[in-house]
Every structure is written in structure tokens, then in C-alpha cells.
Design a protein around this nucleic acid. Structure first.
Length: 816
RNA sequence: GCCGGGGUGGCGGAACUGGUAGACGCGCUGGAUUCAAAAUCCAGUUUCUGAAAGGAAGUGCGAGUUCGAUUCUCGCUCCCGGCACCA
């Protein structure tokens, strides 16, 4: 027998077995406990990168582990196939986006198979295919009927040279990536999904999701940003319409020293008509980006528009400013400036010489200096007449009641969350199923006319959507009145496809409905794994559409993902690996050189899944070396022939030690993989066990028996991580079965027992010695042994022992 | 700017509930094997001090709580992710 480890041959053999036996194709078996194990599906960018390898391997390990626990496991895969890179490739290389995408999928599918992931390939979904997006269009028309979608104007990045809408990613330092022109804000009509209608439920359910990391839940909570406040109206000189603002701090209303409105606000527009300076400023505000990060970090600018509001309590005149950091689309497009008690207002007032008034003082009576910076904590109201001395809550209620009584205000719950704009002015996406009729306005495409198929054979130039120049797509008739009408040429945000694909895997071939009864068997997803960069948008949109689908009677699940594992990024040179940055590492040459198992092992060993992993080519060799040692250890053991079963009562100390190590390792690895997801420590533990086996001198049949037990344990517990080599070595150890069909090993509690244990001796918290004590020794005898320790005595000397702390099984601390 | 996460040897990381800091691996150094190399095997490897036993310091920086802090609290700093049109 050839006993040299040849990964290519070993891996081919295992792959053939899984494929021929259809190991990972699963049906719906009501008698078994299901486990739906999913990763965020990949964008088919052209080749698998290390981030993919990491997340897919994590998921495959969990899936294979759960299978060995006896669960009925589904692990599907598919393609998030619409998106911007296909259009960029089309511009750069002249390949139509569809062709480019399908080629990439073809190639990447081969790479995934080569890595040995246990996917049910019969359920593969591809979002750019009509049989997939048809149901997305159908869902949208249902939402349209129910009033969950609507159209309104909103801001996009406009490239005035290329005459096109840019993604935030395509705006570099405020300029278009290709034209280098200064990007402008432009308002266009777009479709929105009413995610805010579900804001409270999306928020409340976070408290019932113990399987999600706290960090992700916190981010989503903050993103939704529920706040209680008061909407207040300020009368404006010579205007019929009052100026309305929302504030969470009505207790500071007497500290208002100015008002600020957005450049697009009617008051600013009106002032601009007669004041050239204001007009120039309003114009300047258009040269801004749409991204919030850009808005928040830019220089805060503003100017008075020459009119005043009347303070609703004091009656004093409050100057109105136009400011670039106030945005028309959010809230009322106006804010009240309380520089004494808001950081941003303070900075703005300080810069423009506006008065800063203190109306809150710390409740504990301490002194603050408002000229040094804003005091934003809750406190006691001062300098505010009737409400002086009140705390936050009292003042809030007093002001709210007063304004409600006067009809100039009302209590309101406000959300930071905004409705989801789903329109994209792009070609390579799901067509929005809407028809515009001069008489009937926007009409949803009727169900029997779906799908609206995206033409794939197009000339793609990058200037505007090719759909606009295709009468055969554009021209249609109104479903309501039959008159000539035009189709919507915008397509969906690709987040729409990724917000329901997880349910489609349950019944990917269903052509009569979005889902069939198989959805109820598999949903919700038991384990979902993906990049931390999706903590908010993708995961929130998916939760939202799941609730919509539930309310439409399509699903019984309230939440799509029961347990969430957010994997850290794979970084290269300190930056996220991405095609755009050109810092990807191609796994292919590594797989060719070392095999898939080595790549999988290294990925899982290099860092725990939640942490960012800085890629380095060093260390892959170490993984390969370990697999060879593993291979050789099993082969040299097997070459000696069969082993007898372990006689637990007849073991000598060395045999008992190895057996304890074996069972400790099974216990630790089970916990590391099953509960903690710390695959790196699971691997470290099995390396230790294998090192112990290699050091162990074998001369008797009993020696061989404990070694056999150890090696079988290593093969089984490593099989989810390095499945190919374990598939082979399991046979080498004389088994006819395959590890994928084996049960996970259990540990023998009695093997873990130890008569004597080592505990450490501290004096004043510093390590001074070690003592060996009986495992069941009591506190007093442990203290006595510790005090008798020679080195400990040097530090105790003649000092008075004040206290002795005994931590059972661990340490003794003598305090002098 | 705001929200979330992170900082431990030359490197990746371990220490799970406040209890031996540096498991495991990489790299490096020395040795064995070899004509030689690769591969493999053995030993060493936080820093300073010491022949050794041992001692001192040490987990981004500064304080605090505790018998005891990588772990908890406060302040700072640097790095990473997200910020609604990258996916």
C-alpha cells in the first residue's frame, strides 16, 4: 500500500463517494429533527476569495457536526447574481452582464465542489434567473396592493458629466469615479418599502433573539433609533405656515437661540429668491454627497436667512438659519438650536457667534461651564421660568402638555430608521413590475403577466440603462385601461433578492407559488453565518421581509434566523479583501499545492470565527505538516494490524493518562465546536492529543488499544473540519462506514477521573509554588500543604498570615 | 462625526464564570539524519537578571475596585466594520 499522503487522490476519492452516495441531498423527513444551516450566499465576482472560504468552511463544519449529532441537515448554496460589478465588467471588457455572471457562477461552482462542502446542489438558486425574481416581483405587487410600497422623491448622487446616478462607492472625495466631476445631489422619484411600519416589531423581537450576538442586536436597536419626543411649531414672521421641529429634549426649549432649516426647505427657497447670498449658499449645498458619513464629517456651514421665528414661550425673536447639515428628507427638514445642551448645536453656535444659554444644571449640584462645551446629560431645569427646578421627565411632560393645549405641539415617537428605497437606476437587476399610464398613474403588473423579464442580450455602454432604449421592453399597455403605457426601467436594490432567498431554498423548483409546504419544514434557518459587515442592512431587510411574508400568510416564522454567527473579515494588508481594492488572495493555487483539507484546516486554525483574520501565506505549511503527521500516525498504527478493545480496569498509569487525554479532548472539542464555535481551540486540542499519541511508546496489546481509541477519536472529531483525509483514514482504521454517517464520539466520564491534582500556591497573589494534592482534599489540608511549601515559606517567613483563600482544584492564596 | 468591535511574545492566537499569562501553530536558534539539500525527528525560544534554583517586570496608555485583573469600572489612544446606491 502506498502510504504517502497524496491530497489530490485522497480528496478525489472522498468527493466521489459523497457525490455517488448523494450524501448531502436531503428531503423533508418529519420524523427527524431538522437543522437548516446556511451562509450568506456569495456574489459571483469571478473567483472565490478567502472570505468565502472562511465563511463556507465555518458553516460546513457546523453542518457536518450537527449531522453527526443525528440531525437532518440542510446546507444549500446559491448566487446573489445581480449587482454593480457585472455592469462594470461589461463597460471594461464589453461582455454582457448576464454572460459574465453565468461564466463566473460556472467557475465558482467548481471551486466550491473542490473544497468539499456538503451542499445539497439540487437546491441551488440564482437570483438573476426569471424563475427566481418572478416571485420577488410578485411579492412587490402584493405589497403595492397592501400599501406597503409607495413612491416619493429622494436624493441620489448625480454625476453631471456622465449623466448618471452613482453608488456611494463610486463617489471618491466628492467626485465621480470615472468622470472626476463634482457630484451633485439630485432628487428623483423612487419606490420605497415601508419598513418603518414594522419598526416597533423589528425592535421588540430583538429582545427575544438569544441566538444573536449582543453587538448585532445593539447595532440594530441603535439603527432603528426609537425615541420619544415632542413635535413643536414655531410661528414665523410674515408666514402663515409655522416652522415645525421634532425634539427629544423639550425640557431645553428655553435654551433655543436659533433655528436651522435645510437648503431645500420652503423658507430657505423663498429667502433665496430675494437674497443672492442665501441663493448662493443654497446652490452650494447641492454640491454635497448623499452619504450620511460624508454629511456628518463635513464642515458645518450656515447663514441667517433674514427672518425670525417667535419663541412659543418667551415670545422672543429667534433667528432662522439655513444650514448644510440639516437635510430635508429626514424629519421636518428643520431643527431647533439649543447650543447649551447639544454638541452639534454648540459647535455651530460657537463658530457663528450665536448666544449659548444654560437651561439645565447637573442634578447633583456640581458646577458646569457652558462656555467650554455643551452639557448634554439630563439634569434640573434652570433659567426657564415656570418649569425651573423640574427634572427631565417633569419638564418633558409640562412642555408637552402646554404645547398640546395650545395646539402647537404633540408627543411623538420618532425613528431614525427610514423607509427602504428599493429603486436603482441600473440595468443589471430585477425589473420593478410597474407600468406607468397617463390616466391610471402607476399600475402594478398583474400576476398573470409576471415575470417581467430582463432582456439579457443587450448592448451595455454604462451611460444610462439600456432598457430605456429598448421599445420592445419599454412599450406596453396599461393593465387597467388598455391604453399604451410605459414600463418602469428602474430595477430593485439587490438587497431585495437577498432578503428572501433563504426561504426559496426550501422549494427552489416550485413554479406555482413563491414557496410550497416545504418552507414550513425548513424555516426558520437554525444557523446563519456571514460577514459582520452585514450586521445591519442585509439582516434588517431580511427580518423585515420575513415579517411581511408572515403577514401575507406565506410563512409561519416571525424571524428568519434563529442563531447568528458573524464571522470577521479576512484582511489583507490591514484592509478588507475586495476585488475593487485588488488585494484578493486566490485560494486555487493553495488548493492545488496542498489540497482542500489543508486550506480548510488553516482557515479554521488561524483565528476564531468572530475575529478579523489577517491573511498571511505563512502557516498554511504548518497545517499541511500536521495533516501529514496525522496521516503517518494512523498508517503506521494500522500497519501493525488490529487492536483489541480497551480493558479499562487493566490499564497502567501511562495508558490511563493517554486515555484521559483522549476523553478530555472529545469533551473539549464537542464543546468548542458545538457551543463555542472556537474551531481554533478544537484543532489545538486534537493536535495535543496527536502529539501525545506520537510520544507514546507502544509495546503491548493494551498500549495499542488505547492508541487506537485515541486515533479513532481524532479522525471523527476532525472529520467536520478536514473531511477528505478523515474519510480515508477511517477506512485505514478498518471501518467500512464513512465518517459522515458516523455518530459523534461521546466521552467516558470515568476516564477523566484523577487521584492527585496539582494546584498552585500564591503569596499575596504572586505564584510561589506548586503542590500535589488528592483530588478530594479538604480546604484545611490544602492550606496546610500550601503553608508547608518551601518556596512559599520564604515569602511568608515570620509575617503574620492574615487570610488564606482556597479555590478548589485551582489555587491557594496566602495573604500576609 | 455617530453606532458596534478590537489592541496579549518576532507572527497568528490561548487563557470559557475575576484565579498558573503566552496552550496550539508559525518563525527563529541549536542538535540528529544526509555526500549535500529538502523533508523528517529532538531540544530551546516574553523581556531583564542569574551558573542554577530563583527573582523582577510584563496583556495599547493612565487611573480605580479586589487577597488576586488580559478579564470588571472610568478616562485616553490607535486599528477594523457599518452609516441606508459595494455586496
Amino acid at each position: 500500500m502506498d502510504t504517502t499522503y497524496n491530497p489530490q487522490a485522497v480528496e478525489q476519492e472522498a468527493r466521489d463517494y459523497w457525490e455517488n452516495e448523494r450524501c448531502f441531498e436531503v428531503g423533508e423527513d418529519a420524523s427527524k429533527e431538522k437543522f437548516y444551516c446556511l451562509t450568506m450566499f456569495p456574489y459571483p465576482s469571478g473567483q472565490l476569495h478567502m472570505g468565502h472560504v472562511r465563511v463556507f468552511t465555518i458553516n460546513d463544519v457546523i453542518a457536518r457536526y450537527q449531522r453527526m449529532q443525528g440531525k437532518h441537515v440542510l446546507q444549500p448554496i446559491g448566487w446573489d447574481a445581480f449587482g454593480l460589478p457585472a455592469e462594470n465588467a461589461a463597460i471594461q471588457r464589453g461582455v454582457p452582464p448576464a454572460k459574465w455572471t453565468y461564466q463566473n457562477i460556472e467557475y465558482m461552482r467548481g471551486q466550491l465542489k473542490r473544497l468539499g462542502y456538503g451542499y445539497d446542489w439540487t437546491r441551488e438558486v440564482t437570483t438573476c434567473k426569471p424563475e427566481y425574481y418572478r416571485w420577488e416581483q410578485w411579492l412587490f405587487t402584493r405589497m403595492f396592493e397592501k400599501g406597503l410600497v409607495y413612491r416619493k422623491n429622494s436624493v441620489v448622487n448625480w454625476d453631471p458629466v456622465d449623466q448618471t446616478v452613482l453608488a456611494n462607492e463610486q463617489v471618491i472625495d466628492g467626485r465621480g469615479w470615472r468622470s472626476d466631476a463634482l457630484v451633485e445631489r439630485r432628487e428623483i422619484p423612487q419606490w420605497f418599502m415601508k419598513i418603518t411600519a414594522y419598526a416597533d416589531e423589528l425592535l421588540d423581537y430583538l429582545d427575544r433573539m438569544p441566538g444573536w450576538p449582543d453587538s448585532v442586536k445593539t447595532m440594530q436597536r441603535n439603527w432603528i433609533g426609537r425615541s420619544e419626543g415632542v413635535e413643536l411649531s414655531f410661528d414665523v414672521d410674515d408666514e402663515d405656515e409655522p416652522l415645525t421641529v421634532f425634539t427629544t429634549r423639550p425640557d431645553t426649549v428655553m435654551g433655543v437661540t436659533y433655528m436651522a432649516v435645510a437648503a431645500e426647505h420652503p423658507l430657505a427657497v423663498k429667502a433665496a429668491a430675494s437674497n443672492p447670498d442665501v441663493a448662493a449658499f443654497v446652490e452650494e449645498c447641492k454640491k454635497m454627497q448623499a452619504a450620511e458619513a460624508a454629511l456628518e464629517t463635513m464642515e458645518k456651514k450656515g447663514m441667517p436667512i433674514g427672518i425670525s421665528a417667535n419663541h412659543p414661550v418667551s415670545g422672543e425673536a429667534v433667528p432662522i438659519w439655513v444650514a448644510n447639515f440639516v437635510v430635508m428628507g429626514y424629519g421636518t427638514g428643520a431643527v431647533m438650536g439649543v447650543p447649551g445642551h447639544d454638541h452639534r448645536d454648540w459647535e455651530f453656535a460657537d463658530k457663528h457667534g450665536l448666544p449659548i444659554v444654560q437651561v439645565i444644571t447637573p442634578a447633583d449640584g456640581s458646577e458646569i461651564d457652558i462656555s467650554e462645551g455643551a452639557y448634554v446629560e439630563y439634569g434640573t431645569v434652570v433659567n426657564s421660568g415656570d418649569i425651573d427646578g423640574m427634572d427631565y421627565r417633569q419638564a418633558f411632560d409640562a412642555i408637552a402638555e402646554k404645547f398640546e393645549a395650545e395646539g402647537r405641539g404633540k408627543r411623538r415617537i420618532n425613528y431614525r430608521l427610514r423607509d427602504w428605497g428599493v429603486s436603482r437606476q441600473r440595468y443589471w437587476g430585477t425589473p420593478i413590475p410597474i407600468i406607468y399610464c397617463d390616466d391610471c398613474d402607476a399600475v402594478a403588473v398583474p400576476e398573470d403577466q409576471l415575470p417581467v423579464i430582463l432582456p439579457e442580450d443587450v448592448e451595455f455602454t454604462g451611460v444610462g440603462s439600456p432598457l430605456k432604449g429598448m421599445p420592445e421592453f419599454l412599450e406596453t399597455e396599461c393593465p387597467k385601461c388598455g391604453k399604451p403605457a410605459k414600463r418602469e426601467t428602474d430595477t430593485f436594490d439587490t438587497f431585495v433578492e437577498s432578503s428572501w432567498y433563504f426561504s426559496r431554498y426550501a422549494s427552489p423548483d416550485c413554479d406555482s407559488a413563491m414557496f410550497d409546504e416545504r418552507e414550513a419544514y425548513w424555516m426558520p434557518v437554525d444557523q446563519y453565518t456571514g460577514g459582520i459587515e452585514h450586521a445591519i442592512l442585509h439582516l434588517l431587510y431580511s427580518r423585515f421581509l420575513q415579517k411581511v411574508m408572515r403577514d401575507f400568510g406565506l410563512s409561519a416564522a416571525d424571524e428568519p434566523f434563529t442563531n447568528l454567527l458573524t464571522q470577521g473579515m479576512v484582511l489583507k494588508d490591514g484592509a478588507k479583501m475586495s476585488k475593487a481594492k485588488g488585494n484578493t488572495v486566490d485560494p486555487r493555487p493553495l488548493i492545488e499545492k496542498y489540497g482542500a483539507d489543508t486550506v480548510r484546516l488553516f482557515m479554521m486554525f488561524a483565528a476564531p470565527p468572530e475575529q478579523a483574520l489577517e491573511w498571511s501565506d505563512d502557516g498554511v505549511q504548518g497545517a499541511s505538516r500536521f495533516l501529514r503527521r496525522f496521516w503517518n500516525a494512523v498508517h503506521s498504527h494500522a500497519a501493525e494490524g488490529d487492536a483489541v478493545a480497551v480493558e479499562t480496569d487493566a490499564l497502567n498509569d501511562e495508558q490511563r493518562d493517554l486515555r484521559r487525554k483522549t476523553h478530555r479532548t472529545i469533551s473539549k472539542v464537542s464543546d468548542d465546536i458545538g457551543r463555542r464555535y472556537t474551531f481554533n481551540t478544537a484543532i489545538a486540542a486534537t493536535m495535543e492529543l496527536l502529539n501525545a499519541v506520537n510520544r507514546f511508546d507502544v509495546s503491548t496489546a493494551e498500549d495499542r488499544a488505547v492508541v487506537r481509541e485515541a486515533l479513532e477519536a481524532v479522525v471523527l472529531v476532525l472529520s467536520p473540519i478536514v473531511p477528505h483525509i478523515c474519510h480515508k483514514l477511517w477506512h485505514v482504521l478498518g471501518h467500512a462506514s464513512a465518517p459522515v454517517d458516523e455518530r459523534w464520539p461521546t466521552f467516558d466520564e470515568s476516564a477523566l477521573q484523577q487521584d492527585m491534582i496539582e494546584i498552585i500556591v500564591q503569596v499575596n497573589g504572586k505564584l510561589r509554588g506548586r503542590i500535589s494534592v488528592a483530588a478530594d482534599a479538604d480546604t484545611d489540608s490544602i492550606s496546610a500543604l500550601a503553608l508547608a511549601d518551601k518556596n512559599a515559606q520564604r515569602f511568608v517567613a515570620d509575617k503574620k498570615v492574615r487570610k488564606i483563600i482556597v479555590v478548589p482544584g485551582r489555587l491557594v492564596n496566602i495573604v500576609v
